[in-house]
């Protein structure tokens, strides 16, 4: 059952691939990595339960914490042109 849920989530990641490749602006691609990051958090939690090792939830939490760091860096680079 967890495997099927993971399959559906990966399939939904394929749907946003069009925006990642064709997406006219950089913001489409930033949205795509946000989407994939959120899906990855859920997939990691699901893998943990599918393998019977619920402490994989720790990685999912770390992931959720790290996810937005890159987004903030992108947006800062886009608005100010530098990071410093």
């Amino acid at each position: 059952m967890f495997e099927i849920a993971i399959l559906f989530l990966i399939f939904s990641s394929f749907l946003v691939l069009y925006r990642a490749i064709r997406g006219p602006t950089i913001f489409d691609r930033v949205l795509v990595i946000n989407f994939i990051g959120t899906k990855a958090v859920i997939i990691l939690a699901l893998i943990g339960f599918a393998y019977g090792r619920p402490h994989f939830l720790d990685i999912a939490l770390l992931y959720a914490l790290i996810n937005f760091v890159a987004t903030i860096a992108f947006l800062k680079y886009r608005t100010t042109g530098k990071l410093g």
């Binding site: 930033v30 795509v32 990595i33 680079y77």
Partner: peptide, 22 residues
């Protein structure tokens, strides 16, 4: 467009994490 490349590389790492966990 190198900025797009960097964004997509970040997504690459996100998927790679799932592969390592599996």
């Amino acid at each position: 467009d190198l900025l797009s490349s960097v964004v997509i590389l970040s997504a690459f790492s996100l998927i790679m994490t799932i592969v390592w966990t599996r």
